[in-house]
Design a protein around this nucleic acid. Structure first.
Lengths: 215, 215
DNA sequence: AAATACCGACCGACTGGTCAGTATTATAAG
DNA sequence: CTTATAATACTGACCAGTCGGTCGGTATTT
């Protein structure tokens, strides 16, 4: 393997080791020495691959954001399905994904916290905003699709629904993380049903009245 | 004033000073010396009133939790109003409250983060769970009320709706915190409308059709 | 004059980052 | 293939600085 490739790989090893340690201890309680040990390298070596502890933390953030983001899109591609089905699939896939990320969830807290103070704020905030915004974009796109198809009411506000829905998923996952007795799947599913019910075009009155009479 | 009372008052002064400093700097970057200075006392004196930095942090947490909790209940007391109206009022009051708490919002991050690592985890987690659970209780109570009145569909799941709704409010407030261009009021209002629409007993959207005819 | 409240210099523990020196690998020459 | 040499990778003892918490002594109240 090329020298470049090896360097990259070792850097990645360090990042993943750091992710584990940061998840266990939090940013401030994690010492660089411990991270180096976890990665199986000397402290000095670690500093050959990252510029500082903060940089390392940000690299971990980017890595997690990247992987979780690519995974998050699963399920939206069921072509031709009704928008409501796509939204359901999306919810399921999100919930499923995060349920398997227990180990790293503490990191997310740490990221949020970092994005609200410290010198890293701006960098974190930017990535966060970007991520959420793309995510909202997908969801609002689905809502619009449903509206265009006549599946959803025409007077819905796609942006508002998307923002809220994304937020709800987030919050419910968070809640499940806090309270292991919380039934994430069921709650997500049922609430989404209510929302979809609220979004549905009126099922009762025929969309094309044409019963021969006029008001 | 009694010696007891004065002690209590000075402790409170220290707690509030700590809240400011923690909000500015975060738990780890805030030094006890700075907090003492902000409170206008010597470091040694501070330690007459709190046992440790961690203790102080937890005291701040309890204080914020207490005050924000008491404020959060505003608006639910509009007796006799339809459940949907009460829910709307609740949403408004929450949004309004947190919009005014900008200064302390960073603290919330810090609390979440603390509740996911460090020795303080269990204490924080407990209070958080308690708070959310009571809050969900109020909301699910409102939903049940609406169901009993025949205002909401009979097959709704009050727990699920409550959990999700509380989560949504949280998440939207968070979003507004991250993105100052975000229109919190409108989004909250519109999404709640969708949800209420989905909860409504009759899936008959127009509130005042009243063209004189019946389907 | 006793008791209480207050103070900040000081201590030990710890940490991020550095660097002089060692080990390993790549390259060149014989 | 072997040896010599340059280059790269690696290491952990060490440094400078910070911080939570203590304590002996001073000011204030009772």
């Amino acid at each position: 393997m090329s020298s470049e490739g090896r360097k990259f790989q070792k850097r990645q090893r360090i990042i993943e080791a750091a992710a584990r340690v940061f998840a266990r201890k939090g940013f401030f309680n994690a010492s660089v020495a411990e991270i180096a040990a976890e990665a199986g390298v000397g402290k000095g070596t670690l500093y050959e691959y990252v510029a500082s502890k903060s940089d390392l933390f940000f690299a971990v953030f980017e890595w997690i954001a990247e992987t979780s983001w690519t995974r998050a899109r699963i399920g939206v591609d069921s072509l031709g399905a009704p928008a409501s089905e796509k939204l359901r699939a999306m919810g399921r896939s999100l919930v499923e994904q995060w349920s398997g990320m227990d180990d790293y969830y503490g990191l997310v807290m740490e990221f949020w916290s970092a994005s609200s103070s410290s010198e890293l704020r701006d960098r974190f905030k930017g990535v966060f905003q970007e991520m959420y915004s793309s995510f909202r974009g997908i969801v609002s796109g689905l809502v619009r699709e449903g509206m265009a198809r006549g599946e959803f009411r025409g007077d819905a506000d796609p942006e508002a629904v998307a923002a809220a829905l994304v937020g709800t998923w987030d919050a419910l996952i968070l809640q499940a993380w806090f309270d292991e007795t919380f039934d994430l799947e069921t709650t997500t599913e049922r609430f989404l049903s209510v929302v979809l019910q609220g979004l549905a075009a009126r099922p009762d009155p025929p969309p094309e009245p044409s019963d021969g009479r006029k008001p």
